[in-house]
Design a protein around this nucleic acid. Sequence first.
DNA 1: GTTTACCTTTACGTAAACGTAAAGTATTTT
DNA 2: AAAATACTTTACGTTTACGTAAAGGTAAAC
Lengths: 132, 132
Amino acid sequence: MSHDNSTKEYSISDLAEEFDVTTRTIRFYEDKGMIHPERRGQTRVFLARDRVRLKLILRGKRLGFTLKEICEIIDMYDDVAGEKGQLNLLLEKIKIRRTELEEKRRDLDAAEQELIEVEGRISARMKELGLS
Amino acid sequence: MSHDNSTKEYSISDLAEEFDVTTRTIRFYEDKGMIHPERRGQTRVFLARDRVRLKLILRGKRLGFTLKEICEIIDMYDDVAGEKGQLNLLLEKIKIRRTELEEKRRDLDAAEQELIEVEGRISARMKELGLS
DNA sequence: GTTTACCTTTACGTAAACGTAAAGTATTTT
DNA sequence: AAAATACTTTACGTTTACGTAAAGGTAAAC
């Protein structure tokens, strides 16, 4: 077994197309130290690891985190290899982030409920006005 | 019954304090036409309606919507009083927004799952290193 | 061999969402 | 009446997250 680890490669425009962002965006993220593609000559070569990171970044953005926050969150994934004291701190950080996510979930639930209510009011109004 | 409708009043700093934003932020939202406080002389007087709007705005922000998107969403709540064609369009818009919310929910679930996994790996690592 | 298609760096520009300072008004406290 | 407090408008400044040329390198296709 060459324990393959999915050694596929991607160009910058491969990823840009797949995730519907511009190449500028990807280069910007590299500039900020959020992705670390390899180089073949001067050309960037992205591996599975980079692709995962990009996916995480974009997900973070959809959830309303800033790039700085996203950095902090993603960096946690790599910090599991620390020693005792570090790990306790890391657990604390994770707890805080999970609390944030729960708050977002409550916001999400509330927002969805309101849309559902508006739909209800619209249906009622449409029946009032005639047939649907 | 004076069908009170909670006719309480708020100053700009009341709301700023309650929601932990600056007065500048609130004035900015008014400037953008997102809140419409009354005036007593030149001083702003906020009513329950304005407070609700502010709450909606801040919730939208926490969910990663732009102020423009938040405007579009909040405006939908007022558009229920339209006629037939408008209402159908409105239903379409709501459907789109609900789809967005569902995507955010999937993102949220995935993010939470990953944090849980990291917690697991940390616990394992801590047992490896000795006692917790 | 030159066009086409990607890739690169450098660098100024921009929209969004406020921050911050200046300068003034109105009321309440000492 | 002087000081403190809370409100106001006006306007320039700042950070974030890229957009958008400009100017060029490299490799396949015609």
